[in-house]
């Protein structure tokens, strides 16, 4: 019974409420690296994610429930299991991976068509900008056909998970949008 009242209290006052954010993108894009840079502020060594990582972090007084899903072809079909109640999606692109830009674009638009994500804000990280061969943010934006997006708050930010460039900038934007949407 105690639990029941405490969860009722939580709901009434919006205390302890968590904002769900998904980090998606093809394998090797840098999702896990970004998640842990957000969480502990460091670069961790990663292995391909078979399944997911989830971390709760407080950013600007907002409790975020950040889900980093594996990007391998075999795991992508399960992304949709995680769509419900999602406030925002962070889509990470490896800007050096020119060959797979069309695949990334395809997966992105496929995901955005889902009913459950109609209200979700979108932040794209054009990641790995520290690499010389990286495409610029606007080039990535064109490859991904972002201008086509209607009725959605979205933004693209050039980033590097390894040296931290652009990460907080992107997240600041996202939090502002989400806070407004949620009230």
């Amino acid at each position: 019974m105690g639990n029941f009242f405490s969860s009722m209290f939580d709901r009434l006052w919006g205390v302890n409420r968590e904002m769900r954010i998904l980090i998606l993108g093809l394998d090797g894009a840098g999702k896990t690296t970004i998640l842990y840079r957000l969480q502990i502020g460091e670069v961790v060594t990663t292995k391909p994610t078979i399944g997911f990582n989830v971390e709760t972090l407080v950013y600007k007084n907002l409790k975020l429930n950040v889900w980093d899903l594996g990007g391998q072809t075999s795991i992508r079909p399960y992304w949709r299991c995680y769509y419900s109640n999602t406030a925002a999606v962070i889509f990470v692109v490896d800007s050096t991976d020119r060959d797979r830009m069309p695949t990334a674009a395809h997966e992105l638009h496929l995901m955005l068509r889902e009913d459950e994500l109609q209200d979700a804000a979108l932040l794209v990280f054009a990641n790995k900008q520290d690499q010389p061969a990286a495409l610029s943010a606007s080039e990535v934006s064109r490859e991904l056909n972002l201008v086509e997006l209607k009725d959605r708050s979205w933004s693209i930010v050039a980033s590097s998970a390894t040296n931290g460039d652009g990460i907080s900038e992107g997240l600041d934007w996202l939090i502002d949008v989400v806070r407004e949407e949620q009230m």
């Binding site: 009722m8 939580d10 302890n16 968590e18 769900r20 109640n85």
Partner: peptide
């Protein structure tokens, strides 16, 4: 607020609870 059993049935309620934004729920 109250986790009442809706017409949609128990499984539906449970599923909603499992993906709630509130850890305790």
């Amino acid at each position: 607020v109250a986790p009442k059993i809706s017409k949609k049935g128990e499984l539906f309620e449970l599923r909603n609870g499992l993906v709630s934004q509130y850890p305790q729920t």
